[in-house]
Design a protein around this nucleic acid. Structure first.
Lengths: 143, 143
DNA sequence: AACTTATTAGGAATCATTCCCAAATGCAAA
DNA sequence: TTTGCATTTGGGAATGATTCCTAATAAGTT
């Protein structure tokens, strides 16, 4: 009933069990074009699994993030948003309605060796975020 | 006692009053190299103004953000961090200790006209964020 | 089928942030 | 410099996202 592939999260998993909740949450997340909050995932998954709990949604989303199967985005609404697309892309946030869209971008792979050399820090990921007004929000400024 | 310049926030202010709290909060924020949370600003300002309230700190930081005098960063700790440096720069977040540093970078001014044309969105700001491990956190992975 | 252990449901606890309002203060005009 | 009034503050309550806790349940193995 539950496709095994959905939880083929690398072979190094030890003791990770395949549950209906995990399968449906990941399936739901991957089907979204927007980037839902935990609450929104909860509501969406409830349609197929009415008894699911909010705790499980939070726990599972955190687990997917730790497994590298989902991105956790820090929205300007102060909430965590989740993105099931882990390919390299950027995000656009509308500062008015606060929705988040994907942005295909050709961000040049910046050379961080200079920064790393000066600081001793190690850069592992880079994210580009755009902010502005979306189509529906009428390109109005709020200043 | 309180330098006027600190609150010279553009001439278009109407009815904005210069208070000890506002002056000290902005002064404190600008003196920080790290990017403190509201609570940290509260603690820092308390040293000079013991009676200041947390409400006022939150209210004032939001006001500075709205006035364009401070940046509000969405930390991976889920908390809002504030940056009194409004010049164009990026940020590096250590995924282990969660501190945030400034990064001087020459992010090319990307051409968003293609994205804007396709979507009808209007890009007003772009931010580049780097994530990794800082010097003190020993360049260890946590996987 | 029985056993072992990871996982879940559900509610309580935590904690950042916002809201509310009476008291205090900045500032302008007299 | 005082007075008057609108803005701002302090502090505590309210809100809401996220985490924590634990007994019950379900996955996977023998």
């Amino acid at each position: 009933m539950i496709p095994n592939k959905l939880l083929a999260l690398g072979g190094e998993e030890i003791g990770a069990r395949q549950t209906t909740q995990r399968s449906l949450i990941l399936e739901y997340l991957r089907a979204q074009k927007t980037h839902p909050t935990a609450k929104q995932v909860y509501v969406g998954v409830q349609e197929r699994l009415p008894g699911v709990s909010l705790s499980t949604v939070y726990r599972t989303l955190g687990w997917l993030r730790d497994e590298g199967e989902a991105l956790e985005l820090n929205g300007i609404d102060g909430l965590a948003h989740y993105d099931g697309d882990i390919s390299d892309h950027g995000h656009f946030t509308c500062v008015r309605c606060q929705k988040i869209w994907d942005v295909e971008l050709d961000l040049p792979q910046l050379d961080h060796r200079d920064f790393e050399g000066k600081t001793g820090f190690k850069v592992r990921e880079q994210r580009l975020d755009l902010y502005g007004n979306c189509d529906s929000c009428g390109n109005k400024e709020d200043e």
